[in-house]
Amino acid sequence: MVLTLHGYPISTCSKRVAVVLHEKQVPFKFVTIDLATGEQNAPVHLEKHPCGEGPYIIDDHGFVLYESRAIARYIEEKYTGQGTALIPTDT
Rank of each mutant, 00 (worst) to 15 (best):
T32Q: 13
E77G: 04
E47F: 03
K78V: 14
F63Q: 07
E53L: 15
E23L: 14
K48N: 14
F30N: 01
V64K: 10
E47C: 13
K78Q: 13
E77T: 05
K24D: 00
H45S: 07
E77S: 02
I71R: 04
G52I: 07
E67D: 15
F30E: 01
N41A: 13
Q40L: 07
T37F: 04
K29M: 08
E23Q: 10
G54C: 13
G81L: 07
K78R: 10
T84W: 03
Q40G: 06
L65G: 06
V26D: 00
D34R: 14
I57W: 02
T84H: 06
E67Y: 11
G54L: 11
I75T: 01
Y74L: 08
V31H: 05
V31W: 03
D34K: 08
K78E: 10
V26W: 10
G81F: 04
Y56V: 09
V31D: 02
Y56I: 09
T80R: 05
E23N: 01
Y56L: 12
I71M: 13
E39L: 08
R69S: 14
Y66D: 09
L35K: 13
L21T: 02
G54Q: 07
A70Y: 08
C51V: 00
F30V: 01
R73P: 00
V31P: 00
P55I: 00
F28D: 09
E67I: 09
Y56M: 07
F63P: 09
G54E: 10
Y79V: 03
H49I: 12
E76Q: 09
H61K: 15
V26H: 00
K48T: 01
K24G: 00
Y74P: 00
V44K: 08
R69G: 04
I58H: 08
R73E: 04
S68V: 15
Q25S: 07
V64I: 10
L65W: 15
G38M: 08
D34F: 10
P27H: 02
V44P: 01
N41V: 06
E77H: 10
T32S: 03
Y56P: 02
K29L: 13
E39N: 02
D59N: 13
P43F: 14
G81E: 09
K48P: 12
A42L: 14
L21A: 04
I71V: 12
E47I: 10
P27R: 06
G38Y: 03
L65V: 14
G52Y: 07
F63H: 14
A42F: 12
P55N: 05
Q82G: 01
K24V: 02
I33W: 00
I75L: 12
Y56C: 06
E77Q: 15
Q82T: 13
R69T: 09
T32A: 07
G52H: 04
L21V: 01
V64H: 08
E67P: 06
F63Y: 15
V20E: 07
R73S: 03
I71C: 03
S68H: 06
K48E: 02
G62R: 11
P27Y: 14
H22P: 00
P50W: 11
A70N: 11
F63D: 03
I71T: 05
G62P: 09
V31L: 09
H22C: 02
N41R: 11
I57A: 05
P55V: 06
G62M: 15
L35Y: 14
H61C: 09
Y56D: 03
N41H: 15
I57T: 01
L35P: 05
A72Y: 07
V31Y: 04
H22V: 01
H22G: 00
G62F: 14
E47K: 15
K29Y: 00
